[in-house]
């Protein structure tokens, strides 16, 4: 565990990292928790517990009450697109706005480097999106997100379609991002992955965290 992860006081937020305050909508929350820069919060819970809802609210993709701060600056205090550029949500099913991978990311050194780390063959850049496997799309979406050098990553089952070895490669990428100060919120069904990655853990059930400290 990392310092500064005790139950947050209302009003004060982390100067480095994510601070969620009274975040809720009609179905889930309120949530209040901190994820310091460089730490990983793993959220577990059965399907329909509200994990994706929580991540979507944190990315300001769904209407909600309450607020989230990144490095002491609140989401509501900046244009939404600037917030999302720094707090990148990776949904379980990645979306693609054209059938060409190169419309989503340029073929440059950074892309190549991230692809190599994710165990992707260079050829996928020139393949049509619909021909890629689910696992390839999943990792390309991660590459696409990491290219932005986000300050926070909200990941919904990022390794659900990956084999054990590739999962470890993706986790290494996540650790590298954390070493650079990125805060990660990871939704995972994989208990072993949760154990490997978690600095903090929470369990969600019926729209609320289970346990005393939330």
């Amino acid at each position: 565990m990392i310092e500064g992860v005790s139950a947050p006081q209302a009003g004060d937020v982390l100067s480095r990292g994510l601070s969620v305050r009274a975040l809720h909508n009609a179905h889930a929350g309120p949530f209040a928790f901190d994820v310091p820069a460089g730490a990983c919060l793993v959220i577990t819970g059965v399907s329909g517990a509200g994990k994706s809802v929580l991540l979507r609210m944190m990315a300001d993709l769904d209407p909600h009450q309450g607020d989230v701060a990144l490095d002491g600056r609140f989401c509501s205090g900046m244009p939404a697109h600037r917030w999302r550029r720094q707090v990148v949500y990776l949904p379980a099913e990645s979306g693609w706005w054209s059938d060409s991978v190169l419309d989503h990311m340029p073929d440059d050194a950074l892309t190549r480097e991230l692809m190599a780390k994710a165990g992707l063959r260079a050829g996928v850049l020139n393949d049509p999106v619909h021909r890629l496997s689910t696992g390839e799309r999943q990792r390309l979406a991660l590459v696409r997100g990491l290219r932005q050098a986000p300050r926070a990553l909200l990941m919904d089952e990022p390794c659900s379609a990956l084999d054990g070895g590739t999962t470890l490669m993706v986790e290494a990428m996540m650790r590298e991002a954390m070493a650079g100060g990125t805060a990660i919120v990871l939704v995972s069904h994989d208990a072993a992955q949760a154990t490997r990655m978690a600095d903090l853990r929470r369990e969600l059930a019926q729209g609320h965290f289970v346990g005393a400290d939330s």
Binding site: L61, R84, E93, G95
Partner: peptide, 18 residues
Amino acid sequence: RERAAIEARLILGATRAE
């Protein structure tokens, strides 16, 4: 129909116009 594609752009910091 293209919800996922539109949100994929939003997620990466596009404005709604973009």
